[in-house]
Design a binder for these strands. Sequence first.
DNA 1: TATTGTTATACTCTATAACTATA
DNA 2: TATAGTTATAGAGTATAACAATA
Lengths: 149, 149
Amino acid sequence: MENQRSIESDLGYLLTRAGMLVVRATNEALAPLELRTRSYTALSLACDRPDGVPQRQVAADMGLDPSQLVAIIDELEQRKLVARTPDPNDRRNKLIVATAAGRDLCAVAARRSAEVTERYFGSVDPAALDQMREMLGQAVFPDTDRILR
Amino acid sequence: MENQRSIESDLGYLLTRAGMLVVRATNEALAPLELRTRSYTALSLACDRPDGVPQRQVAADMGLDPSQLVAIIDELEQRKLVARTPDPNDRRNKLIVATAAGRDLCAVAARRSAEVTERYFGSVDPAALDQMREMLGQAVFPDTDRILR
DNA sequence: TATTGTTATACTCTATAACTATA
DNA sequence: TATAGTTATAGAGTATAACAATA
């Protein structure tokens, strides 16, 4: 990893550029649903846990400060896509729970999001893609035993 | 690519998270040099072409609108790390040329940047890393014959 | 004391439109 | 008329500090 011919073969540069590309394309693809990449990701994380997930956990999963989640969840809640429900075990927590409407919209959004990924990575070997997911997962969530897919 | 267990195995999500991580860590690593990921990337692109590169080309390579480059190049120019030199062939162009000081600082920054990449991806198989670079390069620069490394 | 969600604030990045000088 | 660089502006994302309620 020592020598590189130019910044254009630098992994950090490529990751940043690819991330920008995907976020932009996903924002466009989700615009008709009045979702952005951010709000879709938060909604999706709520849909992954039917019993609800503390707001702080959503922030951690998104790599954001908890304060940045407030407005995102506010909007999803106003649209009745999620609810902030009190956690009976710890009243400091607010569990973010997806509503039926939230799950329905998330399913539509997930399809559109997958089309974006397909556009950029559809032509490459699925095994190589899985390997990339694994590498990125290790970088983003270290010391986690992850079973992808 | 159709079904996925959760957003956490979604390639777009992983790319975005990994990109955030690398940009943040690189910003920290470059802070002592008074560079950020953005200004380092622009400087590096200038260093890659000793004869200079039109400002518009730097913007394209970074995936930015040309207007977003103005302030970045302004700062590099004030610090005498690059110069805006007139293009004799087309006086609309300003060729961004790295100075000797710019090349020196870029070399230091490149080492620090590589340490960041090493931190997140140092433990994975170099061949798999090359394959990831190839996949990302294809996504970011399609219809380009690229020889990486 | 420590933690969850929240408010507030400042800064950086993103996205567009319009202007100027050159072609 | 088209293109390179620039200015201006609004909106989205990032980074911190501090506060109330709860543990």
